[in-house]
Nucleic acid binder design. Structure first.
Lengths: 340, 340
DNA sequence: TTGTAAGCGTTATCAA
DNA sequence: TTGATAACGCTTACAA
C-alpha cells in the first residue's frame, strides 16, 4: 500500500526543490529540458496527481458546482442533473449532488457544508418545507458571500439570482386548452397546495384557461393535495361521483392515480375522460394508456442552469452582471390518455 | 457583498493572534473566559464558519464519502443513495455523488478526481463498460493508496474489498420456483448479456431453478438483451410465437415490456402468462397489472455499504481488518402479474 | 536554470 | 493566558 505521492516527496527523491518539481510538471520553460524530463518520468512512474484540496485552498476555488435538490427519486430531477453534468464537465467543472429530502434543515446544513470551500457556486431547487417556511436566510447568506446561485424549477421570487424555469402557467394553459379543444366540458384539476410555487402557477394556468373559454371555475372539481404519501387514496376518493370528462394533474403520479381511479369506476380513458399530466417520466411513457403530458425538458434546464452559473463564476471580479431568468420551452407530448 | 470571514481577519480586528482565535472558538481552556466571549461574539456576528477545504488539508481527511453510480435515472440506485445518506449523515459524513453514466472513462475520471483529496473513501457500483473491459486499474489504485472502497450490487469478484450484494442467484431461483409452483410449464427468461455480473447470476438462478425441477433449459426462450435502448422492440419481437405461460425478467423495464408484448398479442396477464420482474420501482407498483417482483431493499444496501465504509475509515491505522461481503436479503413482492 | 519563501485557512506544539 | 511557528500540498514572485 503506497500512499499518494506529493511534490515534496518527489523533490526529496530527485534532490531538487519542490518548486522545481512543480514547475517541471507544469511544463514551465524555466526548467531545463533535462530536469523536466527526469521529473516527469518519475512523477509518471509514481502516478503523481496533484491534491485537489491543496489546489482549491491555494486558488480559492474548487472548480466544483454544488447541486441541491429536494428529492433524487424523481425522474425530472435526474434529467436536470444530466444536463448540469454535461455542461459542467465540458467546462472542466465537477458536480456534487446533495439532497435536501424536502427538509428545510437539511437544505441549510448542506448549503453551509458546501459553502465552506467545497463549492464555487450552487444550483438549487428549493425544498418544499423552505417554500412553506419562507425562511431564505441561507440563500441570501450564500449570495452575500459572493457565491453565485442559480435556482431552477422551484424558485423563489424574492431572491435575486439567476433562475431557470419553465413557463408553468402557460404550459398548463396550453394543456387545459387542449382538453377544451377536445370538447371536454367538465375538466377537473389535481394540484398541490398553493405554497409549492409550481403548483400554484399551474393552478393559475388552469383557471385562466377556463376563464378565457368562459367556463366557470368549479372548486368542487379541484383537489389540492397536501400529502404526497396518501395522495393515491385521496385522489381516488375525490374522483367519485364527479362525472368529469377531462382532467389535468400537476405531475405524472397524480395523473396516473387519477387514471386508475377512473378505470376502477369502469370509465374508459380517453373515451370517457381525457387526462393530461405534467413531467415526462418513465411512468407516463409506460403506463397503459400512456399519458399525454407536459414535458419540461429537464436536460435542457440543467444545461442552461450550469451555463448561467459558470458564466457568473468566470465573469470578471466586480463586474456585476444583471441576473437573468430563463424560461425553457415546454412541449405537450400527446399520447393515449387523450383522444386524437 | 461581504466575503466569508477568516480566522486571520477576526484576529486582526480584535488585535489578538490567529491561534488565540482558533482556540477560543474551539472552547479551549487555555483562553480566558473574557477573550473567549469576545471572540465568540465577534465570530457569531460575522457568521464565521471554518473553511472545510483548509480543514481537509490540515487533517488529511475530508469526512466525505464519494458515491459513484452508473446511472442515476434508475430507481434502485436512488434508493441506495438514500440509505447511504442516512447512515453517513448520522455519523457526520458528507456524501457526494458522481455518475459514471455507465462509461468506463467517466468512472475513471470521477474516481481520480475524488481520490485527490476530496473524498476519504468510495462506494461504487461499477459501470457496465468497466465490467465489459475488465480494466480495473483505477479500482486497485485507489485501494493501494489506502482509500477504502465498498462495492455494491454490480461488484467485481477479483477486487478485494468490502462488498454489499444481494443473492441474485437465489433470489432469481426463488422467483422462478414461484412460477413453477404456479404451474407454469414454459417459462421464458429475459436477461442481459453475460458480462453484466448481476445479469449472469440471475441467468444462472433461472437455469438452476429449472434444473432442480427437472425442466429442460430451452435456449429458444431465453433472450439476452445487449442494448437497453432498443430493448422494447427486441422483446416484442422475441416474444412472438413463443407460447410461454411464465416469464422472468431481470429488471422491471424488461418485465413491463414483456407484459405489454403479451397484452398486444391478446394474451392476459396473469391468466395466460405469469410475469415476475426484478427491482421494486415505481413502474412495478403502478403498472396495470402491477408487477410481481424481487425487491432488492436498496435503502438497506446503501445503509450497509456506508456502515462498512465508515467502519474502515475509522478503524485504527494499520489494523488490517478482513474484507466482508454482506448479502442483503431480497423479498418477492407478489402483485397482479402472477396468479394468487 | 534552480531555489527560497510566502501564502491559501486551519490547528497543534511549544515558547513566552 | 497568549502568541509565534510549523505544517498540510501546492503555486508563484522573487532571489540566487
Amino acid at each position: 500500500m503506497k500512499k499518494k505521492i506529493t511534490l515534496k516527496q518527489i523533490a526529496r527523491e530527485l534532490d531538487v526543490s519542490v518548486s522545481t518539481v512543480s514547475k517541471a510538471l507544469r511544463d514551465s520553460i524555466e526548467i531545463s529540458e533535462d530536469t523536466r524530463q527526469k521529473i516527469k518520468a518519475f512523477a509518471k512512474l509514481y502516478n503523481y496527481k496533484p491534491n485537489n484540496i491543496a489546489l482549491s485552498l491555494k486558488n480559492r476555488k474548487s472548480k466544483t458546482i454544488g447541486v441541491i435538490i429536494p428529492e433524487i427519486v424523481h425522474h425530472f430531477f435526474t434529467t436536470v442533473i444530466s444536463g448540469i453534468e454535461q455542461v459542467a464537465n465540458e467546462k472542466g467543472y465537477h458536480v456534487i449532488i446533495c439532497m435536501s429530502n424536502n427538509s428545510f434543515d437539511k437544505e441549510v446544513i448542506n448549503m453551509e457544508l458546501l459553502a465552506n470551500g467545497s463549492t464555487d457556486g450552487f444550483i438549487l431547487s428549493v425544498a418544499k418545507e423552505t417554500q412553506q417556511k419562507q425562511d431564505y436566510h441561507h440563500l441570501t447568506e450564500v449570495i452575500n458571500q459572493g457565491m453565485p446561485l442559480v435556482m431552477f424549477d422551484r424558485v423563489i421570487e424574492e431572491i435575486e439570482c439567476d433562475k431557470v424555469i419553465i413557463d408553468d402557467l402557460n404550459a398548463t394553459k396550453k394543456a387545459v386548452q387542449r382538453l377544451i379543444d377536445l370538447n371536454c366540458k367538465k375538466i377537473g384539476l389535481i394540484t398541490t397546495v398553493d405554497y409549492v410555487s409550481v403548483g400554484k402557477l399551474r393552478t393559475d394556468g388552469y383557471v385562466q384557461a377556463l376563464r378565457e373559454n368562459k367556463i366557470s371555475v368549479n372548486p368542487d372539481i379541484i383537489l389540492k393535495v397536501e400529502d404526497f404519501d396518501n395522495s393515491e387514496e385521496e385522489i381516488q376518493a375525490f374522483l367519485i361521483g364527479k362525472e368529469l370528462d377531462g382532467l389535468f394533474a400537476v405531475n405524472e403520479h397524480f395523473a396516473i392515480y387519477a387514471i386508475k381511479a377512473f378505470l376502477n369506476q369502469g370509465l374508459k380513458v380517453p373515451e370517457d375522460v381525457s387526462v393530461i399530466g405534467f413531467t415526462n417520466g418513465e411512468l407516463s411513457r409506460q403506463f397503459i394508456p400512456s399519458l399525454t403530458t407536459v414535458s419540461q425538458h429537464g436536460v435542457e434546464m440543467g444545461a442552461k442552469a450550469a451555463t448561467l452559473l459558470i458564466k457568473k463564476l468566470e465573469s470578471e471580479e466586480g463586474v456585476e452582471e444583471p441576473y437573468e431568468t430563463i424560461t425553457i420551452e415546454t412541449s405537450l407530448i400527446e399520447r393515449n390518455s387523450t383522444k386524437r
